[in-house]
Design a protein around this nucleic acid. Structure first.
Lengths: 248, 248
DNA sequence: CATTTGTTCCGTACGTCGTACGAGAAAGTA
DNA sequence: TACTTTCTCGTACGACGTACGGAACAAATG
């Protein structure tokens, strides 16, 4: 009943006791080539556009041949997830707690921005692949020894990483809507602003009207790509720092 | 070029100047019945299991008939999103800033828990339906007048709401993985723990091993359903309060 | 050399999905 | 009754993941 995907996930760590079969028809590609090609497609066109047929064509093999490398499409996605996390070298966590947690958030931001399809990887068991495990250990080391309890350490990391992920999620939602509708946010507002005003007549949103447009403009003007992180992360880190200082 | 979904979203606010056509074959159902039935299906089986065919069967109509009520499946999801948010009566925001933001978080938590498919609604334009707009106004009113700038108000709400959403996301991920694999988390570990230990041999995760199991146990013991919110929300609110106090 | 054995390759096919198309059905109106 | 308007829905198309089973190929064996 052991899961056949586990050894596949750890294939680079445990190179399979027997060094592969000696007889039989040789494979045309390798698992790594499959996973790398799949990541390429997902980076370019999103996870939804990654179909077994197109991926196979990209690799120059038959569609069904993919199933001799991975058990299913979901399996492939699990392998992609762990594999792509292994590409980034995790920087050393130096400085005080705030600096270390900032690094954790920035790495999360950069990785998820580079591979937005990571946002769409849901519903699969949180398999412990080597790179997921390495990263979790690395993240936790940022809060090790500061006086937090074990559960609190996990919660603190979850908080910081989840926030950074949400920043990417918001950015990605806009891009995806634009791609899907074929018109930019600005164009949509130009085309529908009037109709929207007509339909909302009688209702007023005093705060939302003011804040919404201010936030919209601020978002449009995004200069420093890490600026989006600033406010929320600062509040979170303030809160964590205060908690650590208080419970010391 | 005006979007045909907008009037549909606001159909309860603006009941379409002419009170509907007088001639022609009468509709068998209404848009609201379609949307309600769709929400029922999504609540029970998830958004992925909501197909136009099964939904039509549920309503006792032909599959293609649905397209005389909504333009597409994506359209339907947009309508579902706004409609289901309208079901919850937004409680008055009383007390100090902390109390008000806690209420905002709790409402978000409760709604998304009741309708986890809301997590899967992505990639659609953030359409301004009446209930989405009402809720945004309500959320913003929790931070109105405390001294935050307009953009900061939006960021603060985004921070609080995003965190509450992430709590549900984590819970949902576990359930979904269990449903999909047909085995509970515990069963999976019993079946694969040994293999995992073998494959991880040589690598050690001193912090992750300790913290991971502690967090896992704490999660299993979840008593108060709102307890999951506690640590992260407390840190966020501490951070926001400190910021407000400082900049006053 | 011919044959067997172990692998991998992949064409075909099934059931699912969203939905384009156009003919048919049901009401009010003349 | 005939016409107009509106909604209903059977059929069909191209996409999807993937079950199945035989073909293709390389090494081992006789």
């Amino acid at each position: 009943m052991a899961d056949p995907t586990l050894p596949l996930l750890w294939r680079h760590v445990v190179p399979a006791g027997d060094d592969g079969p000696k007889r039989g028809r040789p494979p045309k590609v390798s698992v790594d080539e499959v996973v790398d090609a799949a990541i390429d497609v997902a980076d370019r066109e999103g996870l939804a556009a990654l179909s077994m047929r197109t991926l196979a064509e990209q690799l120059g093999i038959g569609a069904m041949t993919l199933y001799s490398y991975v058990a299913s499409r979901d399996d492939l996605v699990v392998l992609m997830f762990d594999h792509v996390l292994g590409r980034t070298e995790l920087p050393p966590l130096a400085g005080d707690l705030r600096a270390r947690l900032t690094t954790v958030a920035e790495v999360q931001l950069a990785d998820w921005r580079a591979h937005p399809w990571l946002l769409d990887v849901v519903g699969v068991r949180p398999w412990l692949g080597p790179n997921v495990a390495d990263r979790y250990e690395w993240q936790l080391s940022a809060v090790e020894g500061v006086g937090l309890g074990d559960v609190e350490m996990d919660q603190a990391i979850t908080l910081v990483v989840g926030f950074a992920t949400n920043v990417v999620r918001a950015e990605h939602a806009v891009r995806q809507a634009e791609r899907q509708s074929g018109m930019t946010d600005l164009e949509w507002w130009q085309d529908n602003g009037e109709e929207l005003g007509r339909v909302m007549a009688g209702r007023d949103y005093p705060i939302a009207g003011r804040v919404g447009s201010a936030a919209g403009e601020a978002y449009q003007a995004g200069t420093d790509p890490n600026r989006e992180l600033e406010f929320g992360l600062a509040r979170i880190l303030d809160g964590i720092e205060a908690y650590v200082a208080r419970s010391r």
